[in-house]
């Protein structure tokens, strides 16, 4: 028997060259919530966030909605983003909101990372490795963050 099920969905819009709007939805057996986050480049700073709780567990949970504003001003490239969001949005508010917010932030980073990829078939297109190396100049916080971004010279 299915004991638990959770689905998260994030879509990222680009209404302007330096603006990312992420819409995130979390639905599981217990919780249902949504978040809208605005992130502005090149700082990758959260400039606005709104959230709605559709299904919660306790009568106190809706008090976590305004706590989301603690995320405004955070930069996605800071090394302690996850712990800061988990503390300032999660523990002080709702940890499922924090989880969804981090999902939105990560999707924005991936969006920015692959946005300029011209496609391998384009004439003069860089190799994928070259492309990633080039993107690290705009997003230095990704350097050495994983196997794909490991730069032996660092």
């Amino acid at each position: 028997m299915l004991g638990f099920s959770r689905t998260k969905w994030v879509g990222v819009e680009r209404p302007g060259e330096n603006v990312y709007l992420a819409h995130g939805i979390l639905e599981d057996l217990i919780y249902g919530m949504e978040i809208d986050v605005r992130v502005e480049a090149p700082e990758f700073k959260i400039t606005a966030v709104e959230g709605r709780m559709r299904r919660t567990t306790t009568p106190e949970c809706p008090k976590a909605v305004p706590v989301l504003q603690n995320a405004v001003g955070l930069r996605l490239g800071t090394p302690d983003l996850v712990s800061t969001v988990n503390r300032k949005v999660g523990r002080e508010g709702c940890r499922h909101f924090a989880n969804l917010l981090l999902e939105c932030c990560d999707a924005v980073i991936r969006c920015a990372l692959f946005d300029k990829w011209p496609g391998a078939d384009e004439s003069g297109a860089p190799s994928r490795e070259e492309y990633l190396r080039g993107q690290l100049k705009d997003m230095p916080f990704l350097k050495n963050s994983c196997l794909a971004f490991h730069t032996p010279d660092s």
Binding site: S5, R6, T7, K8, W9, V10, G11, V12, E13, R14, Y20, E103, A107, V108, R110, C111, F114, D115
Partner: peptide, 8 residues
């Protein structure tokens, strides 16, 4: 959309 993520 410029980017989409589905996680289940």
């Amino acid at each position: 959309l410029s980017y989409v993520r589905n996680k289940h």
